[in-house]
């Protein structure tokens, strides 16, 4: 078990597309545990994607209940291997912060409702319909698997991107 260091932009790995996981082996399970431990080592952090630790595999770990915004509705801690967004609808604007862009926050439009299919760490296939904050977390983290940061989702530097002042 280990807390992995988080890569910050401009590290080029954050802009790379991650590879699907082909086999759930011991090495992968160790990595998933490390990823979970890394998530919980950051106060208030609700999601992390493998490439943020420099491992270009399609794995994300989320836990929406760690944030106030996710307390009303969440599915608890989830490990998602090869997650795929199969459906999304609606449009919500909210301000996001990201461990890999520590000095910025941005207003990002994302779907309100999504359906995501994924494999858990035992290899079982799932399909999850979720909404609001948890949907945002999953969309943000799956973006990392495609090398996308929130800066790729904003429409205006002037109105959507903010330098963190003291918060």
């Amino acid at each position: 078990m280990a807390v992995l260091p988080i890569l910050t932009y401009p590290n080029a790995l954050l802009k790379a597309v991650s590879e699907p996981v082909s086999a759930i082996d011991k090495q992968l399970l160790t990595f998933v545990e490390d990823l979970r431990e890394t998530l919980y080592s950051h106060p208030g952090c609700v999601g992390i994607a493998a490439p943020q630790t420099g491992n270009l595999k399609r794995v994300i770990v989320i836990d929406a209940q760690r944030a106030k915004a996710g307390q009303d509705f969440n599915s608890g801690p989830l490990v998602m291997i090869n997650p795929e967004i199969n459906w999304q609808e609606g449009d919500v604007l909210a301000r996001e912060g990201c461990l890999s862009l520590p000095h910025l926050t941005a207003n990002v439009r994302r779907a309100k409702n999504i359906r995501v299919s994924y494999m858990d760490s035992q290899g079982a296939q799932h399909s999850l319909e979720t909404r609001d904050f948890e949907a945002r977390v999953i969309l943000h983290e799956t973006d990392h698997l495609d090398g996308l940061l929130f800066l790729d989702r904003v429409s205006s530097l002037k109105t959507d991107v903010f330098r963190r002042k003291r918060y």
């Binding site: 208030g44 952090c45 609700v46 944030a67 461990l99 904050f133 977390v137």
Partner: peptide, 10 residues
């Protein structure tokens, strides 16, 4: 109008 700036840490 007063709105708290809530940043979702992801």
């Amino acid at each position: 109008t007063v709105q708290p700036i809530e940043i979702m840490e992801l």
